[in-house]
Simulated scan of single mutants.
Amino acid sequence: MKKATKIGVLAMAVLMIFSLVGCSSGTTSTSDTKKYVIATDTTFKPFEFENDKGERVGIDIDLLAAIAADQGFEYELKAVGFDAALGEVTSGQSDGMIAGMSITDVRKETFDFSDPYFDSGVVMAVSANDNTIKAYSDLAGKKVAVKNGTEGATFAESIKAQYGFETVSFPDSSNMYEDVKAGNSAALFEDYPVVGDAIASGVPLKIIGEMEKGSSYGFAVKKGQNAELIKMFNAGLANVKASGKYQEILDTYIQK
């Protein structure tokens, strides 16, 4: 009986040691750092685009990198296009998205947004050799090109009944520009920094009229999820603005 009791005690001791080892390995593991998946657009220069080396760059890309470095989180970037990025986040395939996404009341029903990181504006542009379109009223009976999900598209939709034009939607800026250059659409409405950069880069368009006030851009996650990611983005955004890094990024990509 005594011998059996000693064996039982030893067995229990061994089990307790293994149990403690198992518990301690979980708390000291360095693999607990979460890596977020962030979706973005593909062609929304100067916010996200590929440079001559095939590298993904732009205001959104550099800003995300600066904020991640400031806050100490890791991420995987998925350049899938604006519409696909919306789907990635709503389906849970991506944790968040940064893609020149305007903060609107409608989108707030589906997404939680960060603090605004850029204030946009909308302009109308036509082919560089077009001298017939001088005002919105000249668009009556014509087609106007817009890019899906942009402030330009929202603004065009808001005035098309008033001025009697039809909108044609495109998934990316380059195809929208080509449609206007080819004369299929008489004009386009686009976020000012985007079309301004395109013109500065040699795209044969010209801006007509004054800039309309647009909404602000924000980083987004699925509503009710990844609150910690939004919190880190906001904290990092405040820090990179205070350090001057934010303005440095804007100055790199926006033509003055």
Rank of each mutant, 00 (worst) to 15 (best):
K2A: 13
A4S: 15
V9A: 13
V9N: 06
E48D: 09
K53F: 12
G54S: 03
G54F: 03
E55H: 07
R56A: 09
G58W: 07
D62L: 04
A69C: 00
D70G: 10
F73Q: 04
E74C: 01
Y75L: 12
Y75T: 14
E76S: 10
K78H: 13
A79H: 11
V80F: 03
L86A: 09
S94Y: 12
G100W: 13
I103Y: 13
I103H: 03
T104R: 07
D105V: 04
E109I: 06
T110G: 00
T110H: 05
F113T: 01
S114F: 08
D119I: 12
S120A: 08
M124P: 11
S127N: 05
S127T: 02
S127Y: 12
A128C: 11
I133F: 06
S137C: 01
G141V: 09
K142W: 05
V144G: 08
G149T: 04
T150P: 01
E151V: 04
A156W: 06
E157G: 14
I159Q: 05
Y163F: 05
F165D: 00
E166P: 09
V168I: 12
S174L: 10
Y177E: 11
A182N: 12
N184G: 10
S185P: 01
F189S: 08
E190Y: 10
A198D: 09
I199A: 08
S201D: 11
K206D: 02
K206C: 01
Y217N: 12
Y217I: 14
Q225S: 13
Q225P: 04
L229V: 09
A238K: 14
N239W: 01
Q247D: 15
L250P: 05
I254R: 08
K256M: 03
K256N: 08
